[in-house]
Design a protein around this nucleic acid. Sequence first.
RNA 1: GUGCCCGUAGCUCAGCUGGAUAGAGCGUCGGUCUCCGAAGCCGAAGGCCUUGAGUUCGAAUCUCAACAGGCACGCCA
Length: 588
Amino acid sequence: MIRERLASLVEKAIDSASKDGKLGPLTSCPVPVTIERPRSLEHGDLAVGIALKLAGPAKMSPLKIAEVVAEYIEKDAEASSANIARLAVAPPGFINFHLGSGWLELALQEIHKEGENFGRLNIGEGKRVLVEYVSANPTGDLHIGHGRGAVYGSCLSNLLDFVGFNVEQEFYVNDAGEQIAQLGFCSWALYQRLLGRDVPYPEEGYPEISLKHFLEPLVAQEGDKYMHLDAEEGPKTLGALTKVVIMNSQRDLLARLGVNFNTWFSETSLHTSGAVTSVLEEFSKREMSFELEGALWLKAKELGDERDRVLRKSTGNTTYLAADAAYHLNKYKRGFDQLVTIWGSDHHGQVPGLKASVKALDLDPDKLEIILTQLVNLQRDGQMVRMSKRAGTVVTLEEVMDEVGVDATRYYLAESNPQNPINFDVELAKKSSKENPAFYIQYAHARCCAILRRALEEQVNQETGKQDPPVLTQAQIDEYKKEYVANAEVFRAAFEPDHEVFLHQKALVQKLDAFPDEVREAAVTRLPGRLARYAYELANDMQKFYEVSRVITDDLSVTKARLGLILATQQVLANTLKVIGVSAPERM
RNA sequence: GUGCCCGUAGCUCAGCUGGAUAGAGCGUCGGUCUCCGAAGCCGAAGGCCUUGAGUUCGAAUCUCAACAGGCACGCCA
């Protein structure tokens, strides 16, 4: 908020200066003004590097431009009333602002006004967006890679919702084709074996050990009622049953991770409804496909792919791409304004094919955004854990969550950017689970709550040994909350003249104030992990503030002001944690 | 071989659309609780941003090349 106001002041100054002919050939500000945060405190609270960007078009030295712009800002009546304490030009051409406490008071008031909506934006304008992610085969346990996609997709969905999109989250169930047939054979064999019939287990199938825990409850519940089935019906029936068991287990596990879907879209339904055949007809109607050697091909090369792709094999079976094309056509037909598809990076080879099929159907390719999440290398004590599905040595997501804790797992996966590969060391994560960032942030939140509780609770007087009454009553707190909204000046008493102390206080408020900017940045770059890191920084600033500023004091006006600051901090921490899907406990 | 992703402190990661002295956490070492939660705070050590060119006022950031790692290159899903 502060930055926005400042940016418009700077822009205004540039406009008037250029109209006065003070900026060479410029007649208006050609580039948007962005206010930055200087790294070093010596450079002030905020800075603008616009003069450096204007140097080219204005044909003047950046320093000179900065001086001119600074002069115009100082002339501006609004600027002088806006409580800028000091303004300085520094080489190579920065304009640095030192802000007075008035800005800070307004920032705090804003947070109290908005409450749980502080940081919420409307860049989505209510547009409907579908986020598809995880989309694992229902043939086994989810692993850490799925976990990453799940957490990323979930955080992105929360974030898009927070910035005003109407978000739906969908899991595409790959429940058709070869893999599910394999599941049928394996589960049928395993079913019989569990009930004592000596049949061989398919050698090429999923490892027996990775399927066993899904079949066991099934056997316990259903008993031997399917034992009479033949070699055709057995795999079909058991496959279908096992699929449901696995899907339920995936759903439950994801829910534990805070990942919840609106819809589970079945690939099979695309085949049974005729959507796949109809999309193939659509391709041929548009002359975007051709037959060669008994197979049906998509003319993908014409549409930017490096080669053409098979839609229907010479066996008559359709390919994965055909189903995917049908699926995405279905998404478009459902009327979303934006489609976000999140895939593991091992599927990046499919991207051109999918994009080509979208173009071939004359759908708007700009609506479809495909985001790839890089792989997670699972380590244990620095040693790479080789993941082999065949050997059954996959470490499941559930095991990781059990070992390192749900919040820590979620935070760790949320924090990283999807395009970077990450190493997840289970032992390290476990070891540091007491000092991990998720804990630290939650601790800061709990501490804010503790301060409020402290104010409301009776205290044992250390000298007299008797109970002292609470410093504040709930009625007073309620009264204060109204004041926080009504009058920004109540916060003035929170700040101290002592420079060192004030720096910490100011840093905290500035960080709070930056939240909406962080949200915007995270949303447009599709990097919700920024907010995870922001939460950590905010927690850090809160702790530093806490060290030097006593909240509950004898001075009621100071107590009131600082409590307002603490409540604002708690609010923003809670808002951030909500987006990244980590719980915000009141005590721990 | 081709395409995509990546290479920043001992380890795990940030670094926004090129901008001021490259930042955190963990780990290491040293301080700090008669006082709102010490799961905290303060300080120190730790860097040829893989290498080499280029673009420019200015590059960890953009371009090209090399080197190293990962993934994908099917009428598999």
